[in-house]
């Protein structure tokens, strides 16, 4: 099963990279941008076929490594694949 884990900065955490991207977009003439926050996406293939168990395992991965929960939130999504 394929899963997508999205890691984003918690609101209120300073994101200097997002700010720089925001400035670059403005310099390219894109207007009307309120803010840009940068995050990460992990595409993970797992052997587990049971959605609940897969979600639990992926959440544990996010808690232990993929996200630093001091500053980041994460979201786990299962992607229906060929064998679903």
């Amino acid at each position: 099963m394929k899963a997508i884990v999205t890691v984003t900065l918690k609101s209120g955490v300073l994101d200097p990279q997002g700010k720089a991207i925001e400035g670059a977009l403005a310099s390219l003439g894109f207007s009307g941008i309120d803010s840009v926050r940068q995050g990460k996406i992990f595409e993970i293939e797992v052997e587990e076929a049971d959605p609940a168990r897969a979600t639990a395992a992926l959440s544990a991965m996010a808690e232990k490594l993929l996200a630093n929960t001091v500053i980041e939130n994460y979201r786990v999504e299962l992607v229906p694949g060929r064998d679903a």
């Binding site: 955490v13 300073l14 200097p16 990279q17 720089a20 630093n68 001091v70 500053i71």
Partner: peptide, 10 residues
């Protein structure tokens, strides 16, 4: 405790 993030100056 805490975390070390990208320098504010980038």
């Amino acid at each position: 405790p805490g975390v070390l993030m990208r320098n504010a100056s980038l």
